[in-house]
């Protein structure tokens, strides 16, 4: 058996439709991960001690367990407790929470990079904790971590095919179904691999650009 180009061309539109779902799920998942991750990082640093500790444990736990299980867990448990989400929404939530744990660690590194003097200067001027975060700490902590967050965006994109496990019609699921119908897995799966490779390489280029732009930020003032 050899690669059938005509067949590959025939299934390409369906696969691209699946890819759109994949990209959408990644984008929305990243929105969840970026916001939830930031909230966790801030609470961990500035919240009450017991809460910071709990968040730290949660992050550790999420990072140590497989996304696939977390995905199944939400998929089966949410309906049992009365939360009815579509498979796609469940998948986005799982991706978001999983990567929020990673993003929180990235944010934390950025926050730790802001010197104590900055916190003290803010306090001496009477800034509230909220104002200190918003005006002083985060504007300095965030730009340097943008490339690292970009890397997790790419990692999340590569994990999005897991959503096929809960019947989301993203690109891998489309490829599998197409393959099962025709008994030809070679073309759909190879095409999916090429799509991912192309997008990942493009994203890596983009992140290198971000690194050049945000790699350093003067903090000595």
């Amino acid at each position: 058996m050899t690669f059938d180009w005509a067949y590959a061309a025939a299934i390409l539109p369906a696969l691209l439709e699946g890819l759109v779902i994949t990209v959408q799920a990644t984008a929305l998942g990243m929105v969840v991960a970026l916001t939830l991750g930031l909230a966790m990082a801030v609470v961990r640093q500035g919240g009450p001690r017991w809460l910071g500790w709990s968040v730290g444990q949660f992050i550790e736990f999420v990072r140590s367990t497989p996304l696939l299980i977390q995905l199944y867990f939400l998929f089966y448990v949410l309906p049992e407790i009365g939360v009815a989400l579509s498979p796609l929404a469940t998948g986005i939530l799982a991706l978001g929470v999983h990567y929020a744990a990673y993003c929180a660690e990235v944010y934390r590194a950025g926050i730790n990079g802001v010197s104590r003097g900055q916190w003290e200067a803010a306090a001496s001027l009477g800034f509230s904790p909220w104002q200190t975060w918003r005006r002083v700490v985060l504007p300095q902590a965030l730009p340097p971590v943008i490339p690292a967050l970009g890397n997790y965006l790419v990692a999340m994109f590569k994990d999005t095919p897991l959503l096929s496990a809960i019947t989301v019609m993203e690109v891998l699921q489309v490829a599998k179904i197409t393959g099962a119908e025709s008994f030809r897995y070679l073309e759909p799966l190879t095409l999916v691999g090429v799509m991912f490779l192309a997008l990942s390489l493009a994203a890596a280029q983009l992140i290198r650009g971000l690194e050049r732009r945000f790699g350093r930020l003067g903090r000595a003032a």
Binding site: A121, S124, L125, Q140
Partner: peptide, 30 residues
């Protein structure tokens, strides 16, 4: 804290704000 102001050995200016914003930011926000 509003009763006191402090100048630090290592300045601790906010590096992401212009000189002018460093000065007006707290009066506006606080």
């Amino acid at each position: 804290r509003l009763q006191a102001g402090m100048v630090f050995q290592h300045f601790n200016l906010f590096p992401h704000m212009s000189v002018l914003e460093n000065i007006w930011r707290a009066p506006v926000d606080v």
